[in-house]
């Protein structure tokens, strides 16, 4: 993750909207912790609502959406694996299951910390580009 210069200086309203793109996924954590799709949906709805917004806002909404999407994939596997452990007689708690849940938990906590950090920095007007997600957002989001 690194701070970069953006192509223009965004105004106060843009900073708030862009920061809210990250906050959306955090708000959804409270509501949909057991359901991995809720975070993604909340971020996606916010992304749709701002798809005609300024470049700065769209860029940060896209970065937030991409990070939520990859998290959604690993969380979904964990979610269905947990349901199988709970309800299927032929699936039980095992070392790989606990290891997977621990791994997913590490990634979720990491992503949560980064999201909070980026939301704060974005609100202050700093342009934070994440490792992997930043360059990917550059490819998708055009000015």
């Amino acid at each position: 993750m690194k701070e970069q210069n953006f192509s223009y200086v965004p105004d106060e309203q843009e900073l708030e909207k862009a920061s809210n793109g990250y906050i959306m996924s955090l708000v959804a954590v409270v509501v949909g912790l057991p359901l991995p799709v809720i975070n993604l949906l909340a971020t996606f709805v916010f992304f749709l609502a701002n798809r005609r917004s300024t470049y700065f806002v769209r860029w940060h909404c896209t970065q937030a959406l991409l990070s939520q999407f990859s998290l959604f994939l690993v969380n979904t596997v964990g979610f269905w694996w947990t349901l199988s452990v709970l309800f299927r007689e032929d699936v039980e708690i095992s070392n790989p299951y606990i290891a997977y849940i621990a791994t997913v938990l590490c990634f979720n906590i990491g992503e949560l910390v980064l999201t909070i950090y980026t939301a704060i920095k974005t609100r202050k007007g700093e342009h934070i580009s994440w490792w992997f997600y930043g360059p990917l957002t550059n490819l998708i989001c055009k000015s």
Binding site: V74, N95, I98, T103, C106
Partner: peptide
């Protein structure tokens, strides 16, 4: 980006593999 995506998957797989070696 492709290289970083692959690296991210490898990091995830590596942590998962490492934690799988623990007898939880």
């Amino acid at each position: 980006s492709l290289f970083q995506a692959l690296l991210l998957i490898l990091i995830f797989a590596g942590i998962f593999y490492g934690l799988s070696q623990v007898n939880w």
